[in-house]
Design a protein around this nucleic acid. Structure first.
Lengths: 125, 125
DNA sequence: TTCCGTTATGTATAAATGGAAATAGCGGGA
DNA sequence: TCCCGCTATTTCCATTTATACATAACGGAA
């Protein structure tokens, strides 16, 4: 296999508006990677996706949120890069907080649905 | 426009296992439509998707859940059809219950994230 | 036996998606 | 001035995904 996939059953959360996914697991991970690595490019290398795709993901976020989620610099002594804006940090933080509500500990309904899965999907092996 | 899209920003929930989406908004709506209409075919006509696609969605659900979510009949006086199994009803019910936890009323974090959207996305117009 | 609408499946085509690669501009340092 | 790695964008191509269409079987009624 070329890429490790999360194997265990899990819940994913998306904020959708019209036809666009404003934020979801992939965009949240991208924001996190940009914040950690300091550039879009390095984030894409780490995550294994194309720069174009990453830019599109960021662009749709910027289109739907009230403020840009990252600020970018091209050129300069650091040869450019990107970092999360304060607003971007808040977006990521709120998304993570909401995501945390979906864990089995906090939401009894999640466990009830996981219990309906086949044994092969091993909710808790 | 050819199809009405939900326009308001909303949260969507998916249960994912490996590379498959076990259940999400689309599959839940499909289960609902089958339960209401009494057949896969009529559900697809109502929802505007192909029979093959619907069958595949059902198939992946049946592959991941402990029991089939629908029971089907081909031929007969009613000329065949489909209905939700008791298990399928439980799946849909639990999914809806979990989805309900994502409403702004119940989860303060949802409103906090919606408040970060641009005015054009009109969280509460 | 023929007819009906459905389930179930395969095949071929169209549409959407994603990636690879090329290109231009940025701006500080050597 | 040239060089570097990054941002930003376009074009082309491969992959994926979905649709359209065709086919067979089902089983009760007429």
């Amino acid at each position: 296999m070329t890429r490790t996939h999360h194997q265990h059953p899990r819940f994913q959360l998306r904020l959708v508006s019209g036809k666009d996914v404003v934020i979801g697991p992939g965009k949240a991970d991208l924001l996190d990677a940009i914040g950690r690595t300091g550039s879009i490019s390095s984030a894409t290398r780490e995550m294994g996706l194309s720069y174009k795709k990453a830019w599109q993901l960021i662009n749709t976020m910027n289109e739907h949120f009230a403020e840009p989620v990252i600020s970018t610099v091209s050129g300069g002594s650091q040869r450019g890069g990107a970092e999360l804006t304060d607003f971007g940090h808040r977006v990521l933080e709120q998304y993570r907080a909401l995501q945390a509500r979906l864990t089995a500990e906090n939401a009894p309904e999640t466990q009830a649905l996981l219990d309906l899965l086949a044994p092969a999907d091993a909710p808790d092996p």
